[in-house]
Design a protein around this nucleic acid. Structure first.
Lengths: 196, 196
DNA sequence: AGCTTTTGGCTAACGTAGTAAGCCACTGCG
DNA sequence: CGCAGTGGCTTACTACGTTAGCCAAAAGCT
């Protein structure tokens, strides 16, 4: 029997793709093995466990999403950058629901954890976006968490099929971005000094 | 052997409590049966499946959270109401992480689905909060979705153990509420007519 | 080339979890 | 008291994750 020529990266990538196709909860070791033309136990030569596989998929997804957002905000600032970042994240989630679902519900173990590294890097584009607003330095962390919460929340609900009645989600998304933009520019203590 | 005297409501309530204690993913039919002093298959006299159990726990949780938020905004309006609603939701999530986790990741099947009914009702307190702001009627749905996204996002990330460095999450939460409040009051097209 | 080492498949087997089938005692009503 | 129905039970089956141990293919060395 010829070898399949797998390696950890190939297994993780195939797992991410399969999760996007059939949904993250439906991603089992057996199905992934079948997809790869291999018996289930063979996967354990490349990943330590399903938990390990899931974490690697999550790290891959976070990295890809970070890159997409970083590319989207190139050459933009202020509201344009906010909009571009939010759209890029949303597009990623809609295009890769399985990957995104994989990123949810992990406790970051330590600073050496690849997922923690990816998570830390994922803050960078949002930090760049916030640089376009005139925030007090002490507020940067709060604003970062706010952005994270807001876009994570919207993406999760939309991906999970919430937002029933009417479902003009594109409009709602733009409205949400405007809301955040207005809120960021209306911060007290910085009256009217709109980035100048 | 004397009967345990179970009924669906008791099973669901015990499942919700157990999920809060040990985490929703760790809630298995076996563990719940053990908690109730009963063998696993006996549970199937009260719930159709684990999926059914989970949906019922989710419906219970949504109902309880809705009640808590509704009570919290009694007699309040505007920013006070927004704050109270957000705090009530956050408190619920932190006090009942298992129940909350149960509410995530369901596709609402039909209008008869109890979970869909509960979900529809859960919008009411937020609608009431928005009445305190001077929004265009066409924007109500957008604003509702925005509130849902924002508080869902924050609660999820906090419950999942995100928000590492510094972890002054209380402050961040208040900052987020202020951001939303400012954004809602700065809506264009309604200049300065602050609810009067 | 031929020998050796490592690697990446495999089969077999086990534990856990969800679930179906079917039995039988307890509860409650006439 | 007798009887119906409910709510326990045991047994059994399936799917899945995981481990152990075997063996051939690939890769490296002389």
């Amino acid at each position: 029997m010829p070898r399949a020529g797998l390696d950890p990266a190939a297994v993780v990538a195939a797992g991410a793709d399969l999760a996007d196709e059939i949904g993250f909860p439906a991603l089992t070791m057996g199905r992934l093995a079948e997809r790869l033309g291999v018996r289930t136990p063979s996967l354990y030569k490349h990943v330590a466990s399903q938990e390990d596989l899931n974490r690697r998929i999550a790290a891959l997804a976070v990295g890809e999403a970070t890159d997409a957002i970083g590319a989207a905000i190139q050459g933009r600032a202020g509201r344009d950058a906010l909009r571009a970042a939010a759209r890029a994240l949303r597009d990623f989630v809609l295009a890769h629901p399985g990957r995104y679902a994989a990123t949810l519900g992990f406790s970051l173990t330590g600073p050496d954890d690849p997922l923690a590294v990816a998570a830390a890097r994922s803050m960078e584009p949002f930090t760049a976006v916030l640089r376009g607003y005139d925030l007090a330095p002490a507020d940067t962390t709060h604003a970062l968490r706010a952005l994270r919460s807001i876009f994570h929340g919207f993406a999760t609900i939309e991906a999970g099929g919430g937002f029933r009645w009417g479902t003009a989600t594109d409009e709602s998304f733009d409205w949400l971005i405007d809301l955040v933009d207005l809120g960021l520019r209306a911060q007290p203590g910085r009256p009217g000094t709109t980035s100048g």
